[in-house]
């Protein structure tokens, strides 16, 4: 509004300048172009400085700019804002949904991995257990067998020992008999008692 009033004053001053008032004359100095344009009317001078057109331009600018403002502020901008908001909400919710799904997938993968690891662990345990069981059984069996064997060995040794002792006992008797027989052949009869004591002496000596 102020912008509209100002050029109007200028032009009035320019017009009044013809009456050669001191003040108005001074105004005309700075607006020489304006006056020239106003004086020449059409196509002379510099059109943007032609003050006679300012009124119409300002009026139409006010009308068109005002109308554009009203249309923008009342219709166009709220509508675009709404479209963008709806879309933003939709995108946000879709992205949230996608993210939720992704997390669920991750969880599933994780659970699967965990289960797999557990299964592996279990399988490993079973194998280990089986191996341990197997070796324990074998050990027990071997120990049993060994014990059995050593028992048998022991009995056998005992029997051998007994046989040996018996044999040795018999050996003494045979030796005495033999000695008696030998002595009898060489030096006549020898009593069994003498022979036995002699053998004993030899054996001891």
């Amino acid at each position: 509004m102020a912008g509209e009033a100002q050029p109007q004053v200028v032009v009035e001053n320019g017009a009044v300048a013809q009456d050669s008032t001191a003040g108005a004359q001074a105004v005309t100095d700075t607006h020489a172009t304006t006056e020239a344009a106003a004086g020449g009317h059409e196509a002379v001078g510099f059109p943007p400085f032609d003050a006679s057109t300012f009124g119409s331009q300002l009026l139409w600018l006010a009308i068109t700019f005002g109308a554009l403002y009203v249309i923008m502020a009342r219709v166009a901008l709220p509508r675009i804002g709404e479209i963008l908001e709806v879309r933003q909400d939709r995108i946000e919710s879709d992205l949230a949904e996608a993210d939720r799904m992704r997390q669920r997938t991750d969880q599933a993968v994780e659970a699967y991995e965990k289960e797999l690891a557990e299964a592996r662990q279990k399988a490993h345990g079973i194998a280990e257990q089986t191996r341990a069981d197997n070796s324990a059984a074998a050990d027990a069996r071997r120990a049993e067998v060994e014990a059995e064997l050593s028992k048998q060995v022991a009995t056998a040794e005992a029997r051998i020992q007994a046989t040996k002792t018996e044999a040795l006992k018999n050996v003494d008797a045979i030796a005495a008999d033999t000695a008696a027989a030998l002595v009898g052949q060489i030096a006549g009869k020898v009593s069994a008692a003498e022979a036995a004591s002699a053998v004993k002496k030899v054996l001891e000596g």
Partner: peptide
């Protein structure tokens, strides 16, 4: 498929 699922999940993220 395990690795594939993980890769796909990561690229999705």
């Amino acid at each position: 498929p395990e690795r594939e699922a993980r890769d796909r999940s990561r690229s999705l993220a």
